[in-house]
Design a protein around this nucleic acid. Structure first.
Lengths: 217, 217
DNA sequence: TAGATTGTTAATCGATTAACAATC
DNA sequence: TAGATTGTTAATCGATTAACAATC
């Protein structure tokens, strides 16, 4: 699932296992929302209810890194947020380039989640001239022709593809040529890329399919 | 991740493990695309390249259910598609209700993936009166007021939430009252639901965050 | 035949869970 | 104190991988 990639892990160098990291980022999202709802502290059981991860597993995930909770009380939400962000190193600012300002692109760019987690959409690129100049979030849509130069100049290494399947391979090629090494592919297309480029393919519709399997007979 | 839920599994009753099923649906997506690209057969190594799943794991996943390949040759794409669809029981038609016709809702509804996998969007519901009546895909947007009656009448048990976080809990309550038991939550909100209702929360932006962790230092 | 790729074994590793003492 | 919840142990289970004989 999500899925779940299998990258080489460097333990003992400050990096954590893939499974642990995936769960930690889910906890992060729950904690962020719980804080918005005005909560100050939370128990492992409450996190379990929202994430479908076993409560013991959650406590174990935290205790790998220290004793963050208080017995009989639970975890301080602010404290946990800070600890998890340190572990995941999501404190810094990351620049990404988004290609495609259709419905999916606008949904992604409009989400408040990026800003909340220190990810900055440095540019949105689109071939449809009638969309160029429009604002999504606080970024103006740029012409696709600018993509290569701007990505290169800003040394952006993460590209997000929210374009139709037919266009995906060409856009990927352009991004890679400009220096991108991590591509997040929201199209259905299968991308052929050099070995030093990582592709993560996902799609709301595909995910929904996965989830349905577990619940429909 | 996808993430990965942990439902009770009934093996020996024709159901497969959560991990296996998640991988099978990823293979399904790759095979569908490979077929579109004009390929007739595919090797476990090729599937591995596109999914980041180990090739041995892929062969093992298939061999749980039979001998689908030919040594020295690979797998027939049509044959594999048919076998996987049988295993996942995605042959039948499933009706779902989609709430929210904003960017994300339109991106979901407009995806060709659903039709390709036998999932039918039976209704799209929206509170913004100016959008009611518009077509997305081949479905006309209905007023939100119709939601409860139509979901009940059509005995829809799957609801998809593509609404702002502030509205999510109310919509969830309405869906559940109308008989929905599986909610796919694309908002950031944490939903409180009765024990017999399953919530799967996901979000393109959250997914992107997960993926970034594995590649940024 | 020669090369390629499956199907399967065996060994390892990490995830998961129940249970419970520690302690707030 | 009494109740709640953490942190941790121990035991189990499934996932992952390398390796290779079988065979197309």
């Amino acid at each position: 699932m999500l899925q779940s990639a299998n990258e080489p892990i460097r333990l003992g160098e400050g990096r954590v296992g893939v499974g642990v990291a995936a769960r930690l980022s889910r906890y992060l999202q729950v904690l962020t929302q719980a804080k918005k709802m005005g909560k100050d502290r939370i128990s492992s059981q409450e996190i379990a209810d929202y994430t479908n991860v076993n409560a013991t597993q959650i406590r174990r995930d935290f205790s790998n890194f220290g004793k963050f909770g208080k017995r009989g009380v639970g975890y301080s939400i602010d404290g946990l947020l800070s600890e998890i962000r340190t572990i995941l190193r999501t404190q810094g600012q990351h620049n990404i380039a988004l290609v495609g300002a259709g419905h999916l692109g606008q949904a992604i760019a409009g989400s408040p989640i990026f800003a909340e987690h220190g990810i900055h959409i440095a540019g949105v690129y689109e071939t449809d001239a009638s969309k160029v100049g429009q604002l999504i979030g606080d970024v103006a849509i740029s012409p696709y022709a600018n993509l290569t130069d701007e990505v290169r100049d800003r040394q952006i290494v993460v590209g997000v593809l929210a374009v139709p399947a037919e266009a995906a391979q060409k856009v990927a090629n352009d991004l890679i040529e400009a220096g991108v090494r991590i591509i997040f592919n929201y199209s259905e297309a299968l991308l052929d890329v050099p070995p030093d480029v990582t592709v993560h393919t996902s799609n709301p519709a595909v995910e929904l399919l996965h989830a349905l399997y577990f619940h429909l007979g």
